[in-house]
Amino acid sequence: MADLRITYDQKANAAYVYLTDPQAHPRVAHMYPCDPVRVGGMINLDFDENGCLIGIEVLAASSKLPQYMLDAAERIDVEDA
């Protein structure tokens, strides 16, 4: 199984799941917002210019993702000491 890079901002309660090579920096060309009523929150799917899914943004992440995943995610809300 491939390793996924996941970032989490606890203050914003937002996570991002990267579905690309960690060394790649693809550009988001199109974002598809999932219906918040149907999924019970806000989830956005990001696609590149070729139509490939490159990432998933999850708002209200603590209610949508397993806690172990958030615990293992790279924290982006922690300021450098």
Score class of each variant (00 low, 15 high):
residue 21 D to C: 11
residue 38 R to W: 10
residue 13 N to C: 09
residue 53 L to K: 06
residue 30 H to R: 15
residue 41 G to T: 09
residue 12 A to D: 05
residue 9 D to Y: 02
residue 41 G to M: 02
residue 56 I to D: 02
residue 30 H to N: 14
residue 41 G to A: 07
residue 72 A to H: 06
residue 8 Y to M: 10
residue 1 M to D: 11
residue 53 L to V: 01
residue 25 H to L: 14
residue 76 I to H: 02
residue 49 E to Y: 06
residue 1 M to L: 10
residue 73 A to K: 04
residue 40 G to C: 06
residue 76 I to T: 11
residue 55 G to L: 03
residue 56 I to E: 02
residue 51 G to I: 00
residue 32 Y to N: 13
residue 38 R to L: 11
residue 59 L to S: 00
residue 38 R to K: 14
residue 30 H to I: 09
residue 11 K to D: 14
residue 27 R to P: 04
residue 68 Y to F: 14
residue 9 D to C: 06
residue 20 T to N: 15
residue 38 R to M: 12
residue 43 I to E: 02
residue 51 G to S: 04
residue 5 R to H: 08
residue 6 I to H: 00
residue 48 D to T: 06
residue 46 D to N: 08
residue 81 A to K: 14
residue 47 F to C: 07
residue 60 A to E: 03
residue 59 L to T: 01
residue 37 V to M: 05
residue 62 S to N: 09
residue 69 M to C: 08
residue 46 D to C: 03
residue 46 D to I: 01
residue 41 G to Y: 05
residue 71 D to S: 13
residue 28 V to W: 05
residue 29 A to P: 07
residue 79 E to S: 09
residue 74 E to F: 04
residue 60 A to Y: 02
residue 71 D to C: 10
residue 35 D to N: 13
residue 62 S to I: 09
residue 27 R to I: 11
residue 34 C to F: 15
residue 79 E to I: 13
residue 52 C to G: 13
residue 14 A to N: 02
residue 26 P to A: 14
residue 59 L to Q: 01
residue 49 E to V: 05
residue 57 E to P: 00
residue 61 A to T: 11
residue 42 M to T: 11
residue 47 F to H: 09
residue 36 P to Y: 15
residue 17 V to G: 06
residue 65 L to W: 00
residue 70 L to M: 04
residue 18 Y to K: 10
residue 69 M to S: 05
residue 67 Q to V: 10
residue 58 V to Q: 01
residue 54 I to F: 00
residue 44 N to K: 03
residue 21 D to W: 10
residue 5 R to C: 06
residue 58 V to H: 00
residue 30 H to T: 13
residue 56 I to H: 00
residue 47 F to M: 08
residue 70 L to N: 02
residue 10 Q to F: 10
residue 32 Y to V: 13
residue 58 V to W: 00
residue 80 D to K: 12
residue 20 T to H: 15
residue 1 M to H: 08
residue 17 V to D: 07
residue 65 L to R: 01
residue 74 E to W: 05
residue 33 P to F: 09
residue 26 P to H: 13
residue 76 I to A: 02
residue 72 A to F: 05
residue 43 I to W: 01
residue 32 Y to G: 07
residue 11 K to T: 12
residue 77 D to P: 09
residue 56 I to A: 01
residue 19 L to F: 01
residue 15 A to S: 02
residue 21 D to F: 10
residue 35 D to A: 07
residue 2 A to T: 12
